[in-house]
């Protein structure tokens, strides 16, 4: 057969070869069907390790006890015992190396997350003691009267501040 008949076939074969080489170079070797099968498990396996390597920021309140045992004992028997230290003081990260100190949040908005009165009896919120933030000493910090680590006690620093 004449050469001009074969030429398009060579071009087609070359294109297929280029495609296969490009696929070999561009697709990572661990990309393919994994545990969950063709429909749900088609992925780059090493991406799972990338997600596992995300840095943990919230290290839970247990990490605070060795250095801050006094605060832990303070809050342990109070109605606020269930609140994690990090909720109010921020994520621990690598404290005390980084950051050296954590925040002490005295804002009203922090307390109001639970203690703004909402009459929702179908949820636990309805049975939490609450205030109307617009009428209950709107200019004052909650901490001026209430001790956050143990709300059953008045703030020991109360007299000093007023």
């Amino acid at each position: 057969m004449k050469n001009h008949v074969w030429r398009p076939l060579y071009i087609a074969l070359a294109l297929v070869a280029v495609g296969l080489v490009a696929r070999y170079l561009l697709v990572p070797p661990d990309f393919g069907v994994h545990e969950r099968g063709y429909m749900y498990g088609w992925h780059r396996k090493s991406n799972e390790k990338e997600w596992e390597a995300v840095r943990v920021k919230y290290r839970t309140g247990r990490s605070c006890i060795p250095c801050h045992r006094d605060k832990h004992d303070d809050i342990r028997n109070s109605p606020h015992a269930a609140i994690s230290c990090e909720n109010c003081h921020g994520a621990l990260l690598d404290h005390p190396k980084d950051p050296v100190s954590l925040e002490i949040n005295r804002s009203r908005s922090l307390c109001l997350r639970c203690h703004a009165r909402l009459p929702y009896k179908a949820s636990l919120r309805g049975s939490i003691k609450g205030i109307n933030p617009e009428t209950h000493y709107p200019q004052a910090e909650c901490m001026m009267c209430h001790y956050p680590h143990n709300p059953k006690r008045p703030n020991p620093k109360r007299e000093v501040r007023s």
Partner: peptide, 26 residues
């Protein structure tokens, strides 16, 4: 997961322990 079924490039997937993840590079 319908979100995994519709992904045209295999960027979102389900792990063996059932969690659906997204490959940010993909």
């Amino acid at each position: 997961p319908p979100c995994v079924q519709v992904c045209p490039v295999g960027a979102t997937y389900q792990t063996a322990d059932g969690v659906v993840l997204v490959d940010r590079k993909w």
